[in-house]
Design a protein around this nucleic acid. Sequence first.
DNA 1: CAATACTTTTACATTGCTGAAACAAAAAAT
DNA 2: ATTTTTTGTTTCAGCAATGTAAAAGTATTG
Lengths: 237, 237
Amino acid sequence: MKKVLVVDDEQSIVTLLRYNLEHAGFEVMTAMNGEEGKDMAIQNSPDIIILDLMLPKIDGIEVCKQLRQQKISTPILMLTAKDEEFDKVLGLELGADDYMTKPFSPREVIARVKAILRRTQVHAAPMEPETEEHDSIKLSKLTIYPEQYEAFFDDELLDLTPKEFELLVYLAKNKGRVLTRDQLLSAVWNYDFVGDTRIVDVHISHLREKIEEDSKKPVFIKTIRGLGYKMEEPKGE
Amino acid sequence: MKKVLVVDDEQSIVTLLRYNLEHAGFEVMTAMNGEEGKDMAIQNSPDIIILDLMLPKIDGIEVCKQLRQQKISTPILMLTAKDEEFDKVLGLELGADDYMTKPFSPREVIARVKAILRRTQVHAAPMEPETEEHDSIKLSKLTIYPEQYEAFFDDELLDLTPKEFELLVYLAKNKGRVLTRDQLLSAVWNYDFVGDTRIVDVHISHLREKIEEDSKKPVFIKTIRGLGYKMEEPKGE
DNA sequence: CAATACTTTTACATTGCTGAAACAAAAAAT
DNA sequence: ATTTTTTGTTTCAGCAATGTAAAAGTATTG
């Protein structure tokens, strides 16, 4: 199991990332300041580090620099606040492998972490930029290609908005499982979203309009009254 | 798999080159000073060496000289910071196979490395002097010859600027995949570019003007809202 | 060293997505 | 049957993302 070190001073972020990373099958350890983070990076040799730029004691830039000076090449995913003008050159000089601006959605973080691990760890079988793995999710007539941001119904390309697509992918990846509005919100929306959970309903409605033959009698996205929604493989008629 | 040795004292350059070369399917090893570089060149027998001119301990010129003295003919791609330095290289006739001034774009390096390998390695299956491999990329009416810097639409030569062409090639080589503005920037632009990612939009706009029949309804370069752009083979008419 | 071509910035127009609110409909509870 | 709760759906304002023209800044070329 891959080990992830999360270094951030905001408790909420740490909790959020821990929860989501663990669910994605990672082993998670955390540090709340730069010094601690650096030490853990050295001692526990994680497979990847998620590092906030602004940190107490030593900031993210310093941590990154110091690790690289010590020839520790653990991949680093940098977190930066939206307004912190983070230029890429600086990032590259530090040796960070990728960066990401807050606020982000958990799905996004997992995707980046996986991407970084994929490209840094696979020395034995490097891939050409051209040949990406086209993993798809199929549910009877519905086919989703998460990587390409495309979904088809009956071989016809669906015109989905980003949010609809994200929602669909998350539902599909958890097919057969009931997901509450809260779960969907915290997986698909940015973590700083404040608003009614009913927004989920609206997007579900839009999605059904586009993927269900009869949106009055949905076969893909079922409503579980009192709980939330569930994606299902439609049973043969 | 071809082995590339990168010798440069700037961490950012090493990281950048490692990342891009590995993605292009090369095995990469690195050295941060001249002495180390020379030793690795001798011991690990790489297929090609990317060598910075200015280096601590022994500079690139010396490394080059000493290797050639030892009858090591591994092809060398020299990196120079400025044009004045480059004059020195020329004058000295070190036996470097090609040179390149900083800052460069990742695409450019890969292209040079491949070019050098192509013309130095093919002893077993020699190619006729005149016949360069004309690999082309075809997408319905659009045909691109990356090597020749030419692209045709309907057998008509397109008048593209260098940046437009580079962008087109990169998009085409990754057809079907969504590329973010950041990805496009770091692949096509020089690594020291600092500016708005929206510059990509401008060039996309120009490109569409030239390759799309109706630039309001692009069939080649699709916009993936919230993400970036994607090149596609237009579906059957 | 102009002239020209190209790149980047800027500014503004345009599009279309998101989320809030309101109301309708359905299901459950009373 | 009536009320309450939950879900479905529509509408729309605000806003963020994109398209693009034109100006400004660079590089290239004859």
